[in-house]
């Protein structure tokens, strides 16, 4: 009888503890932290597979470590912290004169979530800026994109370049992390 019960208890424990044998995510993490964040290197020498914004001679790629980006860009014109409901960790918005950089919390520190080009004084390294005609978007980035309303989404190297075209003019350009998409 004892042996029988011990065996059953063991089965109960095994079922309870090992039934879900696959990789299990920790539940109390931000949506961004749930996914594994790849290391991205950028800076004066760095390069990545996706599209990268250049502020002066410094490259900013999404999912890059935020600390060197902040050090290179200097003090932001304005700063805002967005707290996720119920979770620890902050999404941070750094607004500079002509573009905005946001970050998301990753286990090893903040990473670049988006870079949004706000006006026509800055351009992508390929030469696209706000106010450019739609034909220039096609010429620079091709006609292979996902269309969501007026937005064209170009996916490359695990990131997205989002270009909004309204009335034949570019009205917004955003570099977007796929790991921490803005709806997370």
């Amino acid at each position: 009888m004892k042996r029988f019960l011990t065996a059953l208890l063991a089965v109960a424990l095994l079922l309870g503890l090992a039934a879900c044998a696959g990789e299990v995510k920790e539940i109390r993490k931000t949506a961004a932290e749930e996914k594994s964040a790849p290391a991205v290197t950028v800076g004066k020498e760095g390069s990545v597979d996706g599209y990268v914004f250049r502020a002066g001679d410094f490259s900013i790629a999404v999912d890059a470590d935020m600390a060197p980006v902040l050090a290179a860009l200097g003090e932001a014109r304005s700063y805002y912290e967005s707290v996720s409901c119920a979770f620890n960790g902050l999404d941070k918005l750094y607004t500079y004169d002509h573009f905005q950089v946001t970050s998301y919390p990753a286990p090893d520190g903040d990473r670049v979530q988006t870079v949004w080009l706000m006006d026509d004084t800055v351009a992508t390294p390929e030469g696209l800026r706000v106010g450019a005609p739609a034909s220039q978007v096609d010429a620079l980035y091709g006609s292979s994109f996902e269309a969501v309303g007026a937005e064209r989404i170009y996916s490359k190297g695990g990131m997205k370049l989002k270009v909004i075209v309204q009335e034949d003019k570019v009205t917004s350009i955003t570099y977007q992390s796929v790991i921490a998409d803005e709806n997370d």
Partner: peptide, 15 residues
């Protein structure tokens, strides 16, 4: 609330 809230980013699709 800070004096300057972050600028509002336009959306490609508001629906």
């Amino acid at each position: 609330v800070p004096e300057n809230l972050p600028p509002v980013k336009p959306l490609g699709d508001y629906s």
